[in-house]
Amino acid sequence: MLAVYCESQSPSDPLAGLVVGERPEPTPTEGWSVITLRAATLNHHDLWSLQGVGLPAERLPMILGCDGAGVDDDGNEVIVHSVIASPGWSGDETFDPKRSLFSEVHQGTFAERVLVPTANLVPKPADMSWATAAALPTAWLTAYRMLFTNAGVTPGGLVLVQGAGGGVATACIQLGAAAGLRVWVTSRDEEKRQRALELGAEAVFESGARLPEKVDAVMETVGAATWSHSVNVLRPGGAIVTCGATSGDAPKKAELTKIFFRQLRVVGSTMGNRHELALLSQFVRQHDLEPVVDLEVPLAEARRGFERLASGDTFGKIVLTN
């Protein structure tokens, strides 16, 4: 079957180890289902795997991809939940210390057919597009948990999204606006700021700009480059919800004095659980939301998508179709 996989790893030239070619068909096992893929989306996790981050070399070759949507052997349209719990785990799978994502321990979703734990399958709403369904399990689920589980904000609350272009950031804008939040956005890029307004942001600002009022929560995916700004724009008692650090995890100032003096909360947020994914799919359907697609290409042309993601110029998700 056709698949997109990591054959070798390089921190400086990650795409050198990317292969689009034939891999063995998955074999059904008890408790697992084979899904015929219809669409999947790229995440930075896929580039990190090619760089050797989180994927030991002894597990290569590894089919890449964390999320996707497709059809099971009974003809059911399903969304693939990305977080795989360890055997015997009960409760929220994101708190399982031995959890993994697809393409870390088990082969990933960038393939014509994918082996998935049956418990990880969520029904896809019949009227939802494959591209929308494929975008939900990683970036959109991360944004959903950040906003609605961890931020502590309510409709009418003011949220700042740091950075306007990535999949999580665009999802935060769309989800937040649909839920009645006031969403402000920062970006270095004027075009991305304007597109954020089109997605429902109330106001946009240059990165690091002084804001006209303090915010209730900051959705932080950038890391070191925006950390001090995120702390400084919060009202007393506000929260930074962080899910990543694309600019690095070592800011010049930790801002600890401001954090404890103003009683700020710093909340780590990783992915979401299967129940949240089911709720997210219904929320997206009810509000008629469509994730922003930066590029859509067939699985056979996946390298184009990886090159686009590696460029850093994306706005929204990159979709692979099958």
Rank of each mutant, 00 (worst) to 15 (best):
C6D: 05
D13N: 13
G17R: 14
V20I: 12
E30H: 04
R38L: 10
A39F: 13
V53Y: 15
P56F: 11
L60S: 12
P61E: 02
M62Y: 11
I79C: 03
G91R: 14
D96V: 08
S100E: 07
S100A: 15
F102R: 00
E104N: 04
V105F: 03
R113A: 07
N120I: 05
N120A: 04
K124W: 02
T132Q: 00
A135R: 11
P137G: 03
T138A: 00
W140F: 11
L141F: 06
Y144G: 05
M146C: 05
F148H: 04
N150H: 11
G152I: 15
V153T: 14
L158N: 00
L160Y: 09
L160P: 11
Q162I: 13
G165Y: 06
G166N: 10
G166W: 11
G167R: 05
A169R: 07
T170N: 04
A171H: 15
I173P: 06
Q174M: 14
L175G: 04
L175Y: 11
A177G: 00
A178D: 02
A178T: 08
V183Q: 02
R188C: 08
A201L: 12
L211E: 05
K214L: 07
M219F: 07
A224V: 03
S228V: 14
S228N: 08
H229T: 15
S230T: 14
V233L: 03
R235H: 02
G237S: 06
G238W: 08
G238L: 04
A239H: 03
I240C: 01
V241K: 03
T242N: 01
A245I: 02
G248Q: 12
G248V: 14
D249T: 13
A250S: 12
P251H: 09
P251N: 11
P251K: 11
K252N: 09
K252T: 10
Q263W: 06
Q263K: 09
T270D: 02
G272E: 08
H275C: 00
H275Y: 06
H275L: 00
S281E: 02
Q282Y: 15
V292N: 04
D294Q: 04
L299Q: 14
R303P: 07
S311W: 12
T314R: 05
I318T: 02
L320N: 08
T321D: 02
T321E: 02
